[in-house]
Design a protein around this nucleic acid. Structure first.
Lengths: 337, 337
DNA sequence: TTGAAAGCGATACCAA
DNA sequence: TTGGTATCGCTTTCAA
């Protein structure tokens, strides 16, 4: 194991100079810095993590709490975990996993033992128990998602309400007077916050623009695809030709299938907007206008905010809502109702 | 922040006694131990992680490297990550995530900086680059899965060959003379090791028992379900009535659907064994005999071995193959070919 | 059964 | 621009 002393000896300087040269926290002459860097690389020097934590009061580790509920959509969840890990690493931080079994215990433990510099909270529930814990620990905590009680919290999330507005606006602008919103699974409207926020945005803007809105959750598609299918058929029979889909890709496929059966062409006879989709809608058989939910965006912002809070502990807590973007793909057509 | 000194003061003992009382590494009289424990809990004492690492040369952290390939099955992967985290935590270890972007760099970094006590390797590829790295670092490394070159490695995995033998034996015992093996995706036979091992086991035992074997990979079901369907129909047309399925649940459902269409009853007209399924086959519409692949088993064993290697660094490297178990559900019927 | 004290390997302050 | 050194909070050896 190479220590800072060996590097210092090899470079012919003191250990403090090595430390400063490598951290850049104090100017070091170009010459000596080179010698030090050469010595460090040739010796394969890597500062000892424990010593660094103890002396520097920085661990360069973030905790990531991820409760896995039964209704967790694995691919989406994985995308968030991965995006967080990548973003953190780019800023020089590693990710320590805190799973379900130990949410409360884990957060308290890593905070009390100074194991991590900050805590990132994934998959936030409306009445999340982690809210209270985050208030009781002094380790900065960033929520990726919004709980109901946001007082004094730092949160990052897509602006789902605005996404709802945007989706309705596009369809209303194209002349649609009636819209069917194909929502998330029923349970997610209770266990999560964002489906409600999107729903609310859609409802609000629909009312403002005089659009007649129908809404249906999509249920567990695997066990009962019929429910969604019936909702779609009913809407089509009633002459509804505009759809906002806030659901997994299988629901999209079901809708496209139903339309194909009836010979209705997307972007011609029918308009579709996929709202807050966390999967790649380009993989769908038909191109669809999308307001994407990009895990990378939320996670990168969360990491950035965490880093900022460490640099300036006086930064006020704040809710950061990421404005939605609209990615057209020709699936919205002028209404001919 | 409560330190060991405050606990010592509160309990009226020296810090070394506190340390020993809490770690149990030296006998401490019942009386003083109680006083110390009381003081510790009432003060909310939690040893500083950095100090502990530095002084104790133990971090109580395991690194988990998880490369995410395009063909990674998210739910299965998540199950492994979760199982590892839970098993580790039970033994007092946290999990540090090492993602794709930094596989090589990450392993070297956490090893050189003494950030982790051991490295767990997930999703092992036949020619995995992590094999070489594990040989070059002195941090104990456990592979969950088998690479081609296993020299001097410690690995844990289900005995897929034995699972193949077991599946064939059950069907052959029931009198089946011809079997269709519905395999994993084509790419997985190149990118992973275990599909080949199961295939080999099935082929080997089929030859031994005089069973005529047909095999087909299942392809990417989302994009081209037709391929699998054709393979199934061809087999059924040829009179094959025994199936071994080594694939995700959608392939199982496809098979069950095809059988239902033809009015063939599972466990009566047709025999099915699901081999090395990493999902819960009880969720299928029809009960199916299963040789389960239980992530918990592999991950717990891996963690246990890691812990053992830390306790006794002289433990020899070894390949640990977990014997398969057979879970009957009435889907294997006496053949009436 | 308990205590004193020497590290562990960095960081960062105080001097020069 | 550089060096000496106190310090971080714990583990563990050596003594008593």
């Amino acid at each position: 194991m190479t220590t800072i002393h060996e590097v210092a000896a090899a470079a012919g300087v003191s250990i403090s100079t090595v430390s400063y040269a490598l951290s850049g926290k104090r100017p070091v002459s170009e010459k000596t810095r080179r010698r030090i860097e050469d010595a460090a690389t040739s010796l394969g020097y890597q500062p000892d993590a424990g010593a660094r934590m103890l002396a520097g009061r920085r661990t360069n580790i973030f905790a990531l709490t991820e409760p896995l509920r039964a209704d967790t959509h694995a691919p989406t969840h994985m995308a968030f975990v991965l995006a967080t890990a990548v973003a953190a690493r780019r800023r020089g931080y590693d990710i320590l996993l805190l799973t379900d079994e130990q949410t409360a215990e884990g957060m308290n433990r890593v905070a009390a033992s100074n194991l991590v510099d900050a805590i990132l909270v994934l998959d936030v529930a409306p009445d999340d128990e982690r809210v209270e814990i985050s208030r009781s620990v002094r380790t900065p905590t960033i929520f990726i998602g919004l709980p109901d009680d946001q007082r004094d919290l730092t949160c990052v999330d897509l602006d789902f309400e605005a996404a709802g507005h945007l989706a309705v606006d596009r369809l209303a602008d194209a002349g649609s007077a009636r819209i069917l919103l194909l929502g998330q699974t029923e349970v997610s409207y209770r266990k999560s916050n964002f489906p409600r926020r999107l729903l609310h945005g859609v409802q609000e803007r629909s009312a403002e623009r005089g659009v007649e809105l129908t809404w249906t959750p999509s249920g567990a598609l695997v066990t009962e695809p019929a429910v969604v299918r019936v909702a779609i058929d009913t809407a089509l029979d009633a002459g509804i030709r505009a759809f906002i889909v806030h659901a997994a890709n299988d629901v999209h496929e079901l809708l496209l299938g139903a339309l194909a059966e009836r010979g209705l062409a997307v972007g011609v006879d029918v308009s579709i907007v996929s709202a807050a989709a966390s999967f790649d809608t380009a993989m769908l058989p038909t191109p669809i206008d999308t307001i994407p939910l990009v895990p990378q965006d939320s996670c990168e912002l969360a990491v950035e905010i965490a880093v900022q809070r460490l640099e300036d502990p006086h930064l006020p807590a704040q809710i950061h809502l990421i404005p939605p973007t609209y990615r057209p793909a020709g699936s919205v057509a002028p209404a001919r109702e």
